[in-house]
Design a protein around this nucleic acid. Structure first.
Length: 612
RNA sequence: GCGCCCAUAGCUCAACUGGAUAGAGCAUCGCCCUUCUAAGGCGAGGGUUUCAGGUUCGAAUCCUGAUGGGCGCGCCA
């Protein structure tokens, strides 16, 4: 389907964006020269232009890096893979400058394996220090501006755990893109217009009336959560009884509620909204409305702040209406003949762009639909000059993607500028039991409860350790367990351990001398040390790959691996030893690990504690 | 009914986007604390990658079909 088009990222081969100093980049360079020579020798046709693929080996027996080049070119060269591989290796060995390669081997079906010299492996330690918190940054983003819109929950109640995953994911993706060289803005779209908000305002007002002493039955379709009472109480504190109206007056002429004769809960609440507006008058209604909105929005902001999630912009849907952006967008569609009237409503011809059916933008009662706002909103985003738009949505909205892209096309903007990232809902478990969640009844676990129960660090980490489109089981008991079962602490513990070791070295008067350590890196001979260095060198590549795929979970896995490397090293050898060269070298290596742990955890919004 | 997403060890999930013997954690079993934090380490067992075909040097990954699960198909937001 055209809508799920090629990702922006796929155009960029990963090797080309890595730092030139990386070992992998050096090998790529060598292989590019080899291909050139093979062409000159007539072994390869002039027009072959292979994507050079150098990967990290999984098995130490296969060296450090490997390429499948010989197998890929076997057809165009007309040679069996291993025969071609031998030619390639011969060319490599004839080359002058590869001091960092220990040896090259052909293995298996035709892989060419590179063994890297130790000093080349440990060179990364110096790079880590030189770049410090910037280690891992790359320029795959090329300074392109991105607007990441996420959470955007309706301000009709507190955030629940379903929003939590979107918040954690969106924030991590934004951090990731920033590190990968994009100019990133984070935005929350506030649905502060529309019927749901009127229901909220009316619910607050009715609870307020009850507080004032009025007696009536609360509408079945009103918002019933506890927080409504709090807002009503605030309303009463600030305005006393000035907004009070007698209940009989409010309810006369209102359609019966569900459960009563001729009852209709939708009609009932709509009539009550009309009554509220009528009896209060525009000014007082606005007072109730904005108090409700600001109260909930304030709560959401505070909640997200505690979750380590911040936004540059809180974009108001109402502002779209007030500034005429929606009308302008609709007029533009009209001028292009992309809308038509039918049954008293205005329809957008989204089928022209592959959508299943045309969509209503203005209802027969004259009200614009949510979709109309969304068309205008996305148009506005592009008008603000962003190169790339990222929307993080709950996967239940996936059917909505084609129509938004259709609208972008109709407005003559590039639909591929929009990347919709879908997030599956998390299913919560406690004590092995699935927690039933129902927004309607107000029976849901809020994000705030989750934060209080498991803590921000664990919650942030748990949410992003899975691919976003994967269904996820969120085990509350596991997340809050401060034990070896919890992967968050495993990583944080590695960081704290390093801090502790460095502190103890200082206490013993053996504080790390970094330059001495860097000079003595050749003293590092343990396999755990080489493994750690290789792991450190992988970090920039992990960032680039994760950013281009919008997959922060790759960072989570990387950090688990790095932490494992550290713990393994810790158990295998003593860092604070007599020999000062060895000691400084080891502490230096470990300090570099500390830096990378910090950098990675920062992307995930998880703290790096010095003590645990 | 149509569309989208998903299916990998007993459980929860990875797999560098088509590469070598599919890897981690938990759970199970066996070791390692008078040594810088055992919230740790080392090792063992555990797999026809849901099933059936296809594409090629090579498939968990791509294509087709089947099965099972989630979601969507409003002049709601």
């Amino acid at each position: 389907m055209a809508f799920f088009s090629v990702r922006y990222s796929e155009a960029l081969p990963i090797q080309l964006i890595l730092r030139e100093s990386s070992m992998k980049q050096q090998i790529v360079q060598i292989l590019m020269n080899v291909v050139q020579q093979l062409k000159e020798e007539g072994i390869l046709p002039e027009d072959t232009n292979p994507r050079i693929n150098v990967e990290n080996t999984r098995d130490k027996a296969h060296g450090d890096l490997a390429t499948n080049l010989a197998m890929m070119l076997t057809k165009s060269a007309g040679l069996p893979p291993r025969a071609l591989a031998e030619k390639i290796v011969a060319l490599i060995e004839a080359m002058a400058d590869q001091k960092s390669v220990e040896k090259v081997e052909i293995a298996g079906p035709g892989f060419i394996n590179f063994f890297v010299k130790d000093d080349a492996k440990f060179a990364v330690v110096e790079t880590v220090f030189a770049q410090a918190q910037d280690f891992g940054r790359c320029n795959v983003g090329q300074g392109k501006s991105v607007l990441v819109e996420f959470v955007s929950a309706n301000p009709t109640g507190p955030l629940h755990v379903g929003h939590g995953r979107g918040a954690a994911y969106g924030a991590s993706v934004a951090n990731l893109l920033e590190v990968a060289g994009f100019e990133v803005d984070k935005e929350y779209y506030v649905n502060d217009a529309g019927r749901q908000m009127d229901i909220l305002a009316t619910s607050v007002w009715l609870r307020y009336l009850a507080l004032c002493g009025e007696e009536f039955t609360f509408p079945s379709n009103g918002y019933k959560g506890e927080y409504i009472f709090d807002i009503s109480a605030e309303l009463q504190r600030e305005h006393g009884e000035t907004l009070r109206k007698p209940a009989f007056e409010v309810f006369t002429g209102v359609c019966a509620d569900e459960g009563q004769t001729d009852g209709d809960k939708e009609k009932h609440i709509d009539d009550l909204i009309a009554k509220a507006k009528n009896l209060l008058g525009a000014h007082h209604y606005e007072t109730v409305f904005s108090l409700a909105l600001n109260s909930i929005l304030g709560d959401i902001k505070e909640d997200l702040h505690g979750f380590n999630v911040t936004f540059e912009n809180w974009f108001s849907e109402r502002s779209l209406m007030e500034t005429g952006v929606i009308d302008a967008a609709l007029e533009k569609l009209q001028a292009a003949d992309k809308v038509y009237e039918k049954n008293g409503a205005l329809w957008f011809r989204s089928t022209e762009y592959g959508d299943e059916k045309d969509r209503v933008v203005v209802r027969d009662n004259g009200l614009k639909t949510y979709f109309a706002s969304d068309i205008a909103y996305h148009f506005n985003k592009l008008e603000r000059g962003f190169d790339i738009l990222i929307d993080v949505w709950g996967s239940d909205h996936h059917g909505y993607v084609p129509r938004v892209k259709a609208a972008m096309q109709a407005l003559e903007t590039n639909p591929d500028a929009l990347e919709v990232l879908l997030v599956q809902f998390a299913i919560l478990y406690r004590g092995g039991e699935k927690l039933a969640m129902s927004t309607r009844s107000g029976q849901f676990v809020t994000l705030r409860e989750l934060r209080e129960e498991v803590g921000t660090d664990a919650a942030r980490f748990f949410y992003v350790q899975r691919k976003s489109e994967q269904h996820m089981d969120f085990d509350l008991d596991l997340a809050k367990s401060k034990s070896n079962e919890n992967p968050v602490y495993y990583i944080q513990y590695a960081h704290a351990r390093i801090c502790s070791v460095l502190a103890q070295a200082s206490e013993k008067g053996l504080a790390l001398d970094k330059s001495a350590g860097l000079a003595a890196l050749d003293k590092l001979e343990l396999e755990q040390e080489a493994a750690l260095a290789v792991q450190l060198a992988k970090y920039p590549e992990v960032i680039a790959r994760a950013a281009l795929a919008y997959e922060p979970h790759q960072i989570a896995y990387y950090l688990k691996d790095l932490a494992h490397g550290l713990h393994s090293y810790y158990n295998a050898s003593q860092f604070i030893v007599e020999d000062s060269a060895v000691r400084n070298a080891r502490l230096t290596l470990v300090l570099a690990v500390q830096q990378v742990l910090q950098n990675g955890l920062a992307i995930l919004g998880v703290s790096a504690p010095e003590k645990m």
